[in-house]
Design a protein around this nucleic acid. Structure first.
Lengths: 228, 228
DNA sequence: CGGTCGGTTGAGTATGCTCAATCCACGTGG
DNA sequence: CCACGTGGATTGAGCATACTCAACCGACCG
């Protein structure tokens, strides 16, 4: 299957779409078509309430999708790593914010009026649908975690998830800090820290480099803990 | 926009899709196209792991989408009410089960290979995309609830959500029992019960008919409690 | 009338939170 | 080169929210 690149992205430029049905003339590319952009640690790609004009693909680095309640409590819905698509919205506004967890490179696509895009660009539609359904799958699993798992089970699931996505073997570096992990798992930083050090004491994992590097020593036991 | 009916559903019958590009001949309708089906309280529409051959639209009644962990803990990802689409999957299997909460009528559509469907049926694609994105929106909000809200806030959010979806005014009947609410909100039945009766004592709501009928006495205060 | 199912209520407890101190790595400036 | 400040992580003590276990209630049904 064709993957989304700057070239294919041009196929659903709204200008090109509008021209459809009137005449077949060469599209006029805009600056926003599949443009690479860099963000540095902590920068906001878009805020809650911003118009949802673009969507994004991670080239390298990590993005967090989050919402902050009136009193400051925060929930991180998801982390997006290299290759992930994000920023597609149902309505015309972003309902969650997107922020760079570390130094980040993304490709930005113009993508307002998503339903229309899909209708007018069927080939891409399948691919976008696949990506959105994958997000929904992730979201469902995460609801099980948030609603029904203990702190230890949450951490075990999280480590295995991250490892599957960015470890080459059993060792990887966590791109995010404890506060991000806590707000993703519905815990406090203290509980995250305690649980990780306890797991290290139990020999399940090894921690290094300020707790940013993790080595999975006992995948079987972690998977048992996951409580799937 | 066109809505999905038995008639439009025929447009993406896989048989018809396969015929495409070879010759334009009339499609052969199958029995599964937009067929109405009834389920009684507690019946399972599909189980976790079942092949994802169909998707569904609720005509009347309520569906719960859920997963049960190895030790019996259960999480209800969502309730679907009249008009909602559900059962679309990313992979070839259902990763959650669907069960009738009460007596239920649905329309069943054949919908394997979703990405392909969208590519080959652009008009429907937009509509399905819209529905899936709406589910994702709901899922995100629910993650905030599960991860960061107190029991009282969870119940307030839940009541307002259900009211918005099926109340005509401030009174409605809960289609599901306490255990379902608990497993949806990441609580126990006891906490759900206690919180509801406490809200009734506080005059926020009124309960009747074995706790199945709810009247919202003070929407403002409930919305304040929601902690959006 | 007895049994079951769903809901409520009570008492005691555990898990994870709050508040607070401490530690450590790192970068900056005297 | 070292003192200092800062941001992130860890650890400890006490506590609160929601859980567990258990009894009880009321409606419904055979």
């Amino acid at each position: 299957m064709q993957t989304i690149t700057a070239a294919t992205a041009r196929q659903f430029n709204p200008a090109a779409v509008m021209m459809r049905g009137t005449a077949t003339m060469p599209r006029r590319p805009t600056a926003e078509d599949g443009v690479r952009r860099n963000f540095s640690k902590g920068e906001e790609l878009y805020a809650e309430g911003d118009a949802a004009e673009f969507f994004y693909k991670v080239v390298s680095g990590t993005v967090r999708i989050c919402k902050v309640l009136n009193d400051g409590r925060r929930q991180i819905e998801a982390f997006h790593l290299a290759g992930d698509l994000f920023g597609l919205e149902h309505g015309s506004e972003h309902r969650f914010a997107a922020e760079a967890v570390d130094d980040l490179v993304v490709v930005v696509y113009r993508g307002r009026h998503l339903e229309g895009l899909v209708r007018d660009n069927p080939d891409l539609g399948g691919q976008l649908m696949s990506s959105v359904l994958a997000s929904l799958d992730r979201a469902r699993d995460h609801m099980v975690l948030l609603g029904r798992k203990s702190a230890r089970e949450k951490i075990a699931s999280f480590l295995l998830d991250i490892a599957a996505r960015l470890a080459d073997g059993d060792r990887f570096d966590l791109p995010m800090q404890r506060a991000d992990i806590a707000d993703h798992l519905g815990l406090t930083i203290e509980t995250v820290s305690r649980t990780l050090t306890q797991m290290a004491r139990d020999g399940l994992i090894k921690l290094a480099a300020c707790g940013r590097t993790v080595v999975l020593n006992n995948r079987d036991q972690l998977e048992a803990l996951e409580a799937a």
